[in-house]
Amino acid sequence: MFAYTIRRLFMLIPVLIGMSILVFSIIYLIPGNPAQIILGQRATVEAIAQVEQQLGLDQPWYIQYFDYVGGLLQGDLGTSIKTKVPISNEIYPYLAATIELTVVAIIIAIVIGVNAGIVSAWLHNSWFDYIAMIFALIGVSMPIFWLGLMEQYIFSVQLEWLPSTGRYDASTVITPITHLYLVDTLLQGNMAHFWDVSKHLILPGLALATIPMAIIARITRSSMLEVMRSDFIRTARAKGLNSFWVVYKHSLKNAVIPVLTVIGLQTGLLLGGAILTETIFGWPGIGRYIYDAINYRDYPVIQSGILLVATIFVMINLIVDLLYAAIDPRITYN
């Protein structure tokens, strides 16, 4: 297991190199001179030359690439054109905001998705099964953008149950410690703020959870159906075991691997989906950070932001792979 972990970590190296090349080439793949695009209509020849120099565009591409990677290895993610602050100094609060949202969303997705899948399989071909799967189909095909706006309209504007945007009520003061505000407010023991932050998490969390929730439900259902047709389940049932235990213990344990795979992939994808959700819900996360950078043509931020998200994605999948062995003793890595 340990050897496998090490081996997998080594295998990350080519993946990361590939990603760095891809991300690095963004600036070349976008047509037009980046300096001209950054400066817009007020560009002068001197200003363009200056921005090119600032971005290192006056150097040959391979030197630029090695400079870039060299910087990355030293933890230098570049400097934002917009704020003129090193990206490594300003990225953490955004990342924390996204992590908080993603964790909430994936919890919602797993709790609802897995249970819906299980019950659908259990009550196979019942009305519950049909309706759940129709919802899952709708959920998979729902554009987050539209869904988010509808949620706001229904739950905030019409029903006035929940706030529509932001991480907390704009006129409260939350002192960040970890920048995970659920954690911070708990640490500070301020339950009013904790509640405020929780309320603000619900709508974006749900919007972000919708697609993975639907996918998880569908995979869980099909995986469970397969397991529940196998002999040992029939035996368990024949022995007169409580069907709840048959389903939730014996079947689920054997059906969980594909579900876990999907959860892993979806968690990674959520980071990407977060760009839309964060934009609609005014959530100051990494997705918004990248989105703003795209609007502002802040190439270093776009590059480093994407690289960071991609790295997290890869890491999550690695963790999922390692979890297989932990969960299913039949799987060994040797």
Binding site: L149, Q152, S156, E160, S164, G166, T279, G282, Y291, D292
Partner: peptide, 13 residues
């Protein structure tokens, strides 16, 4: 609030 419609929603709430 980056998105125009979402910003209007926030005003309406």
């Amino acid at each position: 609030i980056p998105e125009n419609s979402a910003r209007l929603n926030a005003l309406m709430t």
